[in-house]
């Protein structure tokens, strides 16, 4: 077989998944076809709902910037991120320090 991968703990068949995605796609298209046919293009039905506010002309004024993504996740892990960002100082002597530190720790573990 060209599609089955045996892992020693079970198997995985890519073609089964492709069939699954094919059937899912047909279902999605069928659901979409059940939508209202009396939709009127060019009327207010066509306008974006922007929290009852006027829609800005430029997309720059309404996009969510990348730095705001997952703010809750980052806020929840603030202590972790504070220490992590501090380690990533961008100072080359720190890079060398981590290298030497790792070498020293591994040397102790291997030599003892």
């Amino acid at each position: 077989m060209w599609s089955k991968v045996y892992s020693g703990f079970g198997y995985w068949d890519v073609y089964v998944w492709l069939v699954f995605f094919g059937i899912s796609s047909i279902l999605v298209l069928w659901l979409r076809s059940l939508g209202r046919a009396d939709y009127k293009e060019g009327t207010e039905q066509d306008e974006i709902f922007y929290g009852s506010n006027e829609v800005p002309e430029d997309g720059d004024d309404m996009g969510v910037p990348a730095s705001s993504a997952y703010w809750g996740f980052v806020k929840a892990l603030k202590p972790y991120y504070d220490s992590l960002v501090e380690i990533h100082s961008g100072i080359v002597s720190d890079y060398v320090g981590f290298f030497i530190f790792t070498a020293a720790v591994l040397a102790v573990l291997v030599l003892l």
């Binding site: 997309g59 720059d60 309404m62 996009g63 969510v64 910037p65 990348a66 997952y70």
Partner: peptide, 15 residues
Amino acid sequence: VKVFQTAFLGPARKK
């Protein structure tokens, strides 16, 4: 998903 959403999706930018 963040990269896809912020770089490729969203409204058109004038710039």
